[in-house]
Design a protein around this nucleic acid. Sequence first.
DNA 1: TTTTCTTGCTAACGAACGTTAGGAAAGGTA
DNA 2: TACCTTTCCTAACGTTCGTTAGCAAGAAAA
Lengths: 198, 198
Amino acid sequence: MESTLLSRKDQIDQTATALFRTRGFAATSMRELASALGMEAGSIYSHIRSKEEILHRICFRLAEDFFSGFEEAAADEILPAATRLRRAVESHVRVLTADVAASAVFLHEWRHLSEPARTEFLALRERYEAGFRQLIGEGAASGELYAPDPIFAALTLLASLNWLPSWYRPGGPLAPIDIAHRLANQLLFGLEVRGNQK
Amino acid sequence: MESTLLSRKDQIDQTATALFRTRGFAATSMRELASALGMEAGSIYSHIRSKEEILHRICFRLAEDFFSGFEEAAADEILPAATRLRRAVESHVRVLTADVAASAVFLHEWRHLSEPARTEFLALRERYEAGFRQLIGEGAASGELYAPDPIFAALTLLASLNWLPSWYRPGGPLAPIDIAHRLANQLLFGLEVRGNQK
DNA sequence: TTTTCTTGCTAACGAACGTTAGGAAAGGTA
DNA sequence: TACCTTTCCTAACGTTCGTTAGCAAGAAAA
């Protein structure tokens, strides 16, 4: 007996996520997906409308996760910007590590969304990144952070974080929260030794 | 009259690179590529052996560029490790910005190489990353760098750099060398203000 | 019991895929 | 002149693609 915790539809999403991640959306056929699920290709369409619908769900579900995590981390405007930034970084890492496969799809396969979903997705991502720019900008304005170019700094910061799904394996020696702390430290303190380090 | 600076084969590579970058290797058809070149699909095979051959050339050419750049930057062992690391970062950025499209393909589309090319490619990439780990490790050992986990630090560093092709546009306000300097500074000094900043 | 929902099958659809065969035009070289 | 190389064409090959239609078995709901 299979795990009945997931509906068949959720099983399809999950298996598709793994395949999309390793082989890419375009290179994953419905027959491959069906085979991985132990069924025939046509049968999948009792549960979904199209292949792209699966990708759509994966991408937009993660977008929501990132947003709600950020809200919670950065909403409290009493905290210093640097602290909120650190919390936002940790939230981002938490979402990434909670489902690495889905994160990888979210990061790389969104281009295979057709319009208007693609444009909608990019708008969401842009809003999310703007949140980070805002935090870094505030921190720079208040003198907490050294960031002569907040746009540039935000790009680099998210870049470091978003590479995580390409090497992180759940169950490794580092727990997600450890990774989050290390990343935050390295990004905020840098590599070069100057003065006291945490 | 077309630009005769590039052989037809090179034109194919170049056009394919742009398409592979924006649409992905699997989602780019030979008929699309042909159409972008103003010819028919079958005609391409007068110049190449297969679609994958194009991808192979793109990926391995860039691998060579990265390697030779790194050698030149980091070979001089008289220099401090931190200096060599900075030079290696700048070299990496230079290769990335010299051909952003090819870099994006190099970074994302290598999975569509079939064996044994795929394994060979990954081995090259691993060797390259090991070079960075080595530099960071040396710097940490000599006390120049603060990097309690050189493996982790190297991953983060290359992550920040490799995100560049997803936002860099040639001809923008920042010249490649400026970007290289900023990236190196941000990665080596971090964002948090402690002591004198360059 | 009857009905409905879920889940899956087989078979097939038209379209698109990478690739090949065979021929032809054009230009340089001998 | 004859030959070779480069370049591109048309037409088609066998395969795979996403998707649909129609049907059937079992479980759940009425």
